[in-house]
């Protein structure tokens, strides 16, 4: 099963023609289907894709209408405009929130991936006392609803002098993303042949050198998945950010709540903001999507 790495994200392996021919005579093989089956397949995929995409497109559609478009979607086409975007981008603090979120999410991604890769590698390659409980602890940390302890956590950040700082929020986000990432990466490193490490040792590299120079470049798909996961964790989180950050360090997810104020929700601005927020997430997604499948599986299989 470790073949995944070599295969990378290549398309589904093509069954040799001879084998297909042989199979056809007996029962229907995997790689062929009747026209009817083809239509059914495409129909299913189309419906599923439509369900997956529709809510997002709906937000996009509403955002292009007047600010009350959510009440009368039929009106949108007659009043297409960018008014909502104009308000969000030019007349609110949105750009600043956006910048804050980019800083926090980028830092969480880089830091999260680095520390989880280093830990994942150590657990994958080195048998040291504690490596078993370590992975178990990672899983356990995901089981406790930390937000019930938000007040003690607040006091802890105060003590560490990390309140209302980017680094404080980044570290908190790392506690959410790193356990999963380390788990995934450990699994991924397991699929990378140990001979590579030995070659590094022969060349006189330190274990860290081997990890950094030889193994990391091979682990791109795994790193891509963890980067994606870390980014999304930081990009969409609300509760911690709301509690720990103050103007002007407010992140997007918290900032746009002011559009949805209790007494007078401004859904127009909210939809426009949602679309703008989704763009960076989509970009990160496009960058990593070709590695997602391989990266996630190797981690999952071996984790």
């Amino acid at each position: 099963m470790s073949t995944t790495t070599e295969r990378g994200s290549a398309a589904v392996p093509v069954v040799p023609r001879a084998a297909r021919g042989a199979a056809r005579r007996r029962v229907r093989g995997r790689a062929e289907r009747s026209t009817g089956a083809s239509i059914a397949l495409h129909a299913t995929l189309l419906v599923a894709s439509a369900i997956a995409v529709f809510p997002v497109l709906w937000i996009l559609f509403i955002s292009l209408g007047p600010s009350t478009a959510w009440q009368q979607p039929n009106e949108v086409l007659h009043h297409l405009g960018l008014g909502n975007y104009r308000f969000v981008l030019l007349h609110s603090h949105f750009p600043r929130w956006f910048l804050n979120s980019v800083i926090v999410a980028a830092a969480t991604t880089v830091l999260g991936v680095l520390v989880s890769a280093s830990a994942g590698y150590a657990v994958s390659r080195m048998r040291f006392p504690g490596h078993r409980p370590l992975m178990w602890t990672f899983l356990v940390t995901q089981m406790f609803p930390m937000a019930v302890l938000i007040v003690p956590l607040y006091n802890l950040l105060v003590q560490l002098d990390l309140l209302d700082t980017y680094i404080g929020l980044v570290l908190v986000y790392c506690t959410i993303s790193v356990p999963f990432c380390a788990w995934m990466l450990k699994g991924y490193f397991d699929t990378i042949p140990r001979e590579i490490d030995e070659a590094g040792r022969v060349d006189g590299l330190t274990p860290f050198g081997t990890f950094w120079r030889l193994v990391m470049p091979l682990a791109k798909p795994g790193l891509a998945v963890t980067a994606f996961f870390s980014f999304l964790t930081a990009w969409g989180e609300v509760a911690y950010s709301n509690q720990f950050m103050r103007d002007p360090h407010t992140t997007l997810a918290v900032g746009i709540r002011t559009f949805a104020a209790d007494q007078r929700a401004d859904w127009g601005s909210m939809t426009a903001a949602s679309v703008v927020i989704a763009i960076p997430a989509a970009i990160v997604f496009m960058l990593v999507q070709k590695h997602l499948v391989t990266g996630l599986t190797a981690g999952g299989t071996k984790g």
């Binding site: 997002v56 999304l232 969409g236 949602s274 927020i277 989704a278 997430a281 989509a282």
Partner: peptide, 10 residues
């Protein structure tokens, strides 16, 4: 895969 790339609250 798109729903994954969209923050949950959106």
């Amino acid at each position: 895969i798109l729903p994954w790339a969209v923050p949950a609250f959106i």
